[in-house]
Nucleic acid binder design. Structure first.
Lengths: 169, 169
DNA sequence: GTTAGTGCAAACCTTTTGCAGCTCT
DNA sequence: AGAGCTGCAAAAGGTTTGCACTAAC
């Protein structure tokens, strides 16, 4: 278990480390991807089928308020849900491909510089910074160019209804 | 009417400029604040009481897809709705006070620099960048310090239920 | 006269709340 | 025992969709 930082932080504030929270904590902590509540719920149920969706939301809220996880939108590409990541890493921007949905992380000095400038300029006390960048990754740029060329030759396509996520069980 | 840029852009793509859209366009364009759909709807109804909320959403989607407005979250301080602003201005970050809710805009070279670095680093084609910074404005920093001091002396406060926005009509 | 756009109602997805019962300490 | 948590059901908030009617070109 690698999430001792989080566990300690919770204990200090008298927050109980229940079985459900341990499951969720472990999942968030060791997941490579950016999980949303529904995905986290579905993973958690594999370990405890009784665990309720509401508990997932309550736990996420707790962690968010405690500054232990960051909440992301990832440009709302997958819908209006939120995504979560542990707040251990250095500040970084999320770079989201609008075509394939791949998410890259960018670390670099402009982020620190931006933070510093805003603190200086406004006398602002920065607590949390979120930078999300949408565009096309190198791979999708060529695919997209091709798609555009084809679309230009064809009569206007009948719009395919945007697929929504499957109704939850 | 100052929104000729938007009007032209719509016309070029054969999108009709209906009375409803003109109302909404004018409101978005000349509003100083960051409007959400509900606020826009309420303003629009003052000019046309028959105008439907759905039309507001459809128009916003249209403008967003056309790259004519940017969609913001403003750190979800006021709830999970989105805010909109015309995309005429130079790229800027939004700086939101987590206590009083005031939103400042920050223009500055770190933003351009960040964009450039990401394009170079990933070979990424940046279409839209969104930076939102939460923290405490200079004014609220002192108020907050005072509040914390008081809270520390008092027994734990009974949590006041978070007021949700009034149910829509 | 077409085709696109509107209004209405109803659905949808995501998240929150109320409350009774359970569980850590 | 007592505060804190959970699960369940139900609601809320924000947004989208289906469809018949209307209006812009």
């Amino acid at each position: 278990m690698a999430n001792e930082g989080i566990r300690d932080s919770l204990k200090e504030r008298g927050i109980r480390l229940t079985r459900q929270r341990q499951i969720l904590l472990d999942l968030i902590d060791k997941s490579g991807e950016h999980l949303d509540a529904e995905r986290l719920y579905s993973l958690a149920r594999q370990e405890d089928p009784k665990l309720n969706r509401v508990t997932v939301y309550r736990t996420l809220k707790l962690l968010k308020q405690g500054g232990l996880v960051d909440e992301l939108d990832l440009m709302h590409l997958g819908g209006d849900q939120h995504y979560y990541e542990t707040r251990m890493k250095q500040e970084h921007a999320h770079v989201i491909c609008l075509r394939c949905g791949k998410v890259e992380e960018f670390f670099g000095e402009p982020l620190q510089r931006l933070r510093r400038q805003i603190e200086d300029h406004f006398g602002f006390n920065v607590i949390i910074a979120r930078t999300e960048i949408g565009g096309y990754c190198s791979h999708c740029q060529v695919l997209r160019a091709r798609e555009m060329a084809v679309a230009a030759e064809l009569p206007p396509q009948p719009a395919v209804p945007k697929k929504r996520a499957a109704r939850r069980a």
